[in-house]
């Protein structure tokens, strides 16, 4: 069946044909939040700087979100160039009192993944307690099983 289009509308339709590949790519991709969790034991966390790298698989960083405690609720600092890439350095500090201790979700990274589950590697580049002294912390990446908002 053929449709008769008004000239203006016909131009609109022609424009609409362009992003077909984009729409197709979007269908097979999935978004997954990765919680970045650090453990500072009984010390207080005032600052952290962590690097995450996609080690294997097809994944790109598409969003950065803050963590759970009030001191780190705002999204961390990051280089916007990291978005749509596979490597990011995130960092945040807080001058709040009190500061969080124990196991803390400091940030969540939003990933766009394709195919098999990618593997991620995290590294602590710096961490400090409230007085600015170096802090030894453990860090882990915890993918959320349920997707976020789409």
């Amino acid at each position: 069946m053929r449709h008769r289009l008004l000239p203006g509308r016909a131009a609109l339709m022609a424009l609409a044909l362009a992003p077909a590949a984009l729409a197709l790519a979007d269908e097979v991709a999935r978004f997954r939040p990765l919680d970045i969790i650090v453990d500072v034991g009984d010390r207080q966390l005032a600052a952290y700087q962590i690097e995450l790298v996609v080690r294997s698989g097809d994944a790109t960083i598409v969003g950065v979100e803050g963590g759970e405690p009030a001191a780190f609720k705002a999204a961390p600092y990051y280089d916007p160039a990291a978005l749509a890439g596979g490597r990011i350095v995130i960092a945040a500090y807080s001058t709040d009192d009190p500061l969080p201790s124990g196991r803390v979700r400091v940030a969540t990274l939003h990933m766009r993944e394709l195919g098999e589950a990618p593997r991620y590697q995290v590294k602590v580049l710096a961490a400090a307690s409230g007085d600015g002294q170096p802090l030894s912390i453990a860090v882990e990446v915890q993918p959320r099983t349920t997707g976020g908002e789409r």
Binding site: H3, L12, M13, L15, P19, A20, A23
Partner: peptide, 23 residues
């Protein structure tokens, strides 16, 4: 809205072209 800015799937464009209500 995506059709308005040329970001829609071609199937949407085809449907709207033939549907007076959507037009």
């Amino acid at each position: 809205e995506l059709l308005r800015t040329g970001e829609a799937d071609p199937a949407i464009a085809r449907h709207v072209a033939g549907c007076a209500q959507c037009r």
